[in-house]
Design a protein around this nucleic acid. Structure first.
Lengths: 241, 241
DNA sequence: CGTCGGGTTGAAGATTGTCAATCGTAGTGG
DNA sequence: CCACTACGATTGACAATCTTCAACCCGACG
């Protein structure tokens, strides 16, 4: 079958090439039909759907940025993960075998998204039956746990400056292997509200801290891009607490 | 072969019965030898070893409490996960297939521990080859991600009272299915320093907040046990922020 | 021209951290 | 049995960090 533009982009995605591996693992036509690969776009600001044609879907992000979040009882929001191109969108939700519904971690688009979706149940079965594929998924999940622990430690023990520096550096570390950064500059399609929710601060304080970082010659965050003036100073700011 | 006392306890461990599943999945003697099941004890306060006989080991906690932590550049500690009986100790580390060494998340014993250990590499292979077993491991990893996100949101957006109430309640939710709680009371072998490191506060402030919670009739934490006076009030304290 | 969403800034207050002293309890060695 | 010590918990005073509330700016857009 002829694949649309997004498919080609998705099939050639870097970082483990999960889409490629999935396609490589599919055997006959029935197999492929069960996986039910389909391409979806989501507009900036919109929710990424959990279901499509009434089955839970596993999505891989082909292009654009998204984030996963929790809403606390008092209504405040916490962003628990940024989802970048080539990543699985909801790894744990997609691969969960539990029948009982769990607390949800909804996903929202920061920019317009192009997604490659599979039937979550079929994908899970396929992975369980294909060790090479499962090994990739394991490593994705493991990386997600590690990232979550890094963030936990940062939120628990770092100052506002440290947390923001940490956020910006950890995003950069993920973008570099994807070739999505320029020299000392990369796109960061986050409003100050998103940064605040991602590092556990108020927007007002985020604004102040970003001013400090700008004035002390560390970096500038504005117009949806980060520009480093002094990467080492940023790393020191992140380390200082 | 005759198994020691811990082995029996381990083989009958609840919560998915991972040890049972692992043993059930082993075929012949060579198979069993490769897994290299061995029982280890660790004294309270000691580090849980990553290696044993020079191979990476995957441990399941048979009895006792442990915790995983990060040390930040400035020397402060953040506890990212409490490890309770029947749980895998270092799920991501044990199942990682990556050759490159990652940031470590060391494990320390809160009480004396009894552990059941396997060769990490063999266990990973065995799981990849045994879908039923892999499904269990997937669910363990997924639960770990969920817990990490819960903690992230709590640290980001809750007050000191809220974080401590959250900690105590989330531990209780894990202990209840194991039958490790009494009526409104359960053991919590944490010093105030551990609580502080687990919720991102100082010991001084933890002491103050625990006094508040005690005086307002919510709960008492002392002598290594939590006693709830009013569970709903505790849940409200956790929800309030 | 008005308004709306983001960002910035100021002042005041709440929360949490830091520093330091004190207390109780459990060893430990004389 | 009695210092002496070590560790954890508690308390007070004070300082730093962060939040809250409010005003204002600015560019986009109808």
């Amino acid at each position: 079958m002829a694949l649309p533009e997004q498919a080609r982009r998705c099939l050639s995605c870097p970082a483990g090439g999960l889409c490629e591996a999935i396609i490589a693992a599919t055997g006959d036509a029935a197999d492929r039909a069960a996986l039910d690969q389909r391409f979806v776009t989501v507009a900036a600001g919109q929710q990424v759907p959990k279901f499509e044609r009434s089955t839970a879907r596993a999505f891989i992000l082909c292009s654009g940025w998204a984030f996963r979040y929790r809403i606390l009882p008092d209504g405040r929001r916490s962003i628990v993960r940024l989802v970048l191109p080539s990543q699985l969108v909801s790894t744990e939700a997609a691969f969960s075998g539990l029948a009982v519904p769990q607390i949800d971690t909804p996903v929202k688009a920061l920019t317009d998204l192009q997604l490659c979706g599979y039937s979550a149940a079929s994908l899970r079965e396929k992975c369980l039956a294909t060790p090479a594929l499962m090994a990739l998924v394991l490593d994705v999940l493991i990386a997600e746990v590690r990232d979550a622990y890094d963030l936990t430690a940062a939120l628990a023990r770092r100052s506002a400056q440290g947390r923001i520096a940490f956020l910006v550096l950890s995003v950069m570390k993920k973008l570099v292997p994807e070739g999505l950064t320029q020299n000392r500059r990369y796109p960061l399609p986050l409003r100050q509200q998103h940064i605040a929710d991602a590092v556990g601060l108020t927007t007002v304080h985020v604004s102040r801290v970003l001013s400090q970082l700008r004035e002390s010659g560390v970096m500038t965050v504005s117009d949806g891009t980060v520009s480093f003036h002094d990467v080492q100073a940023c790393e020191r700011a992140a380390a200082r607490g």
